[in-house]
Design a binder for these strands. Structure first.
Length: 523
RNA sequence: GGUGCUAUCGUCUAGUGGCCUAGGACAACGGCCUCUCACGCCGUAAACCCCGGUUCGAGUCCGGGUAGCACUACCA
């Protein structure tokens, strides 16, 4: 029987959600939606020492911002969200979706493995193992070495249980049989074969914190939660054979999920996996949202705070490792859901190209209406004006109009300020380079004459002004470029900006004349 | 060191034996447009890791090198 597709995203709450993790979540989501399946979110907090407060909320909020919806497990409560609160809810029939709250379940399965002889107790302390690794190069806890260690295989079950009774700390290790080729079928890479000799007897459970390790918890939960496809990063490929062995030891091979190991996101320069540090070093975010780490006090920048649109981040990330046939680059979430396929995920790692990310954002920005952008830009604009001590009510229609004139020059909403500040604030100084190049000896004379001409002008429309000024320039033979550029410097403070009549239109007669007068005095 | 994965312009990639004198996009550079700066448009430069084999024919299939990456924890 064909089971309903069910995938999971299972992050650890050890800090902000890395952009690579976001892509993993995205691919899982696209796959689930395409197959009318279920997207589950589970928190893998089996390492109590690495827990970071707030990380769970962060992960859920980030996915919510990006439009990656969760069907089962942990997610943001919509009603609370609408009211501006962050509240986590748990949806589904599989008990808790936090592994730290599933201890009793893991106990049952650890015992099952112990009873069936697939696992054993081990008492070697971390220090002893550390010493062993120093002493013997390439030491590995496996079939070759386990009979020389402190465990229930060498000590006997009775003695082992006695030690446990006495409160001695122990772990449970998986007993890997040697000399066997383990086959893993990967949806992206095909068949991968690894000999069990290179696998070690992985720790499945640690009594110190009464928690399983990733490997055990992961397999048990995926089985219990009826996961059909495990889509995760390539760093898990080497341990996939171990997972196959675990499914087999439990007798679950018939419902074992299909695996797909995603290529890694690499550093933009040099080599290696993209890391948190690269963001700081190269000056771009590696996290979706800004994160204030309560544990170490660090603050990491986020895509949202940098002015990115969630759909741009999604589009950018989707194409980092996946590409359809053909040349299409702009994809909506719906298009991605329709066209995504694991078969077309590339096998090689992708270097993270931040410049291209900016371009994606630009594409989405110019697609948005001026009104929509004005809505987003208003707070930015108001803050800048406040900082400059300007307390003037700004008309949103004007803002939208101005944005329409300059939006194709920017990648991000906050950048609009540099492109349009002169519409709202008169220049207080004049760009030296522009002055050198465009402010000629005759410019004061030209501006004085232009001022007189404009003062008499009633109709302030672009057409009227053009019809007035151009013939005058031509008649006097001043040269269009010379007059217009000087005029522009008066209004803008530099040789840049949209068409001059678009500027005078927004400024209005009074402000235009005032700026020319000011320039005449100051330059 | 061991094991595994991977390999097309600087980067993301298209390419599934003849459509490839290898296509698109970002970035770079040049030109056009123009009152400026941008946008836009047009163009330039830029790649099949190496060596063998299979084949009439290989970027595409096979083998071997090489390089890069990942893993090698009582982390995930």
């Amino acid at each position: 029987m064909e089971r309903q597709v069910k995938v999971r995203f299972a992050p650890s709450p050890t800090g902000a959600l890395h952009i690579g993790g976001v892509r993993t979540a995205l691919y899982n989501y696209l796959f689930a939606r395409q197959h009318n399946g279920v997207m589950l979110l589970r928190i893998e907090d089996t390492d109590s020492t690495r827990f970071v407060p707030g990380a769970e909320e962060y992960i859920l909020e980030a996915l919510d911002w990006l439009g990656i919806e969760i069907d089962e497990g942990l997610r943001l409560n919509r009603k609370a969200k609408a009211e501006g609160r962050i509240e986590i809810e748990s949806v589904g029939e599989n008990g808790s979706y936090r592994q730290s709250e599933r201890r009793e379940i893991y106990h049952i399965y650890v015992k099952q493995l112990l009873d069936s002889g697939h696992a054993y107790y081990a008492f070697d302390t971390p220090e002893e193992l550390e010493a062993k690794r120093k002493e013997i190069p390439n030491f590995q806890y496996d079939a070759r070495t386990r009979m020389q260690m402190q465990n229930s295989l060498t000590l006997g079950l009775e003695e082992s249980l006695r030690r446990i009774e006495n409160g001695e700390k122990y772990v449970v290790r998986f007993k890997v049989d040697p000399d066997e080729d383990v086959h893993v079928q990967d949806l992206i890479r095909g068949e991968v074969v690894i000999n069990s000799n290179i696998l070690d007897d992985k720790v499945l459970y640690k009594s110190a914190d009464d928690l399983p390790t990733y490997h055990l918890a992961n397999i048990v939960d995926d089985h219990l939660m009826e996961i059909t496809h495990v889509i995760r990063g390539e760093e898990w490929l080497p341990s996939a054979p171990l997972h196959v062995l675990l499914y087999r030891a439990f007798g679950w091979q018939d419902t074992m999920p299909r695996f797909a190991h995603l290529p890694l996101l690499l550093k933009p320069d040099g080599n290696g996996k993209l890391s948190k540090r690269d963001g700081d070093r190269l000056g771009f975010p590696v996290f979706p949202l800004e994160f204030h780490n309560q544990k170490d006090g660090t603050v990491s920048s986020g895509y949202r705070e940098s002015g990115y649109f969630p759909e741009a981040v999604i589009n950018f990330l989707a194409l980092l490792g996946w590409h359809n046939t053909g040349d299409q680059e702009i994809y909506s979430m719906d298009e991605l859901i329709e066209q995504f396929s694991l078969e077309r995920v590339s096998k090689a790692g992708a270097k993270f190209d931040y410049e291209k990310g900016k371009w994606f954002n630009h594409q989405y920005l110019i697609q948005k209406s001026d009104e929509e952008l004005a809505e987003l830009f208003m707070p930015v604009l108001e803050k800048h004006l406040r900082d400059l001590g300007v307390s003037r009510a700004i008309d949103k229609t004007t803002v939208a109009k101005v944005i329409g004139l300059v939006k194709d020059r920017v990648n991000f909403v906050p950048e609009l300020w540099e492109q349009c500040n002169f519409f709202f604030v008169a220049p207080t100084e004049y760009d030296e380079k522009s002055l050198q190049k465009r402010w000629k000896e005759d410019s004061p004379k030209h501006m004085t004459e232009l001022l007189a001409l404009l003062e008499k002008q009633e109709d302030w429309s672009a057409e009227a002004l053009d019809g007035l000024v151009m013939p005058w320039i031509n008649e006097k033979e001043y040269g269009v470029g010379i007059v217009m550029n000087a005029f522009r410097i008066c209004l803008v403070g530099a040789a840049r900006g949209p068409h001059i009549w678009a500027i005078t239109d927004v400024l209005g007669k009074e402000e235009t004349l005032r700026r020319v007068k000011t320039a005449l005095q100051k330059i």
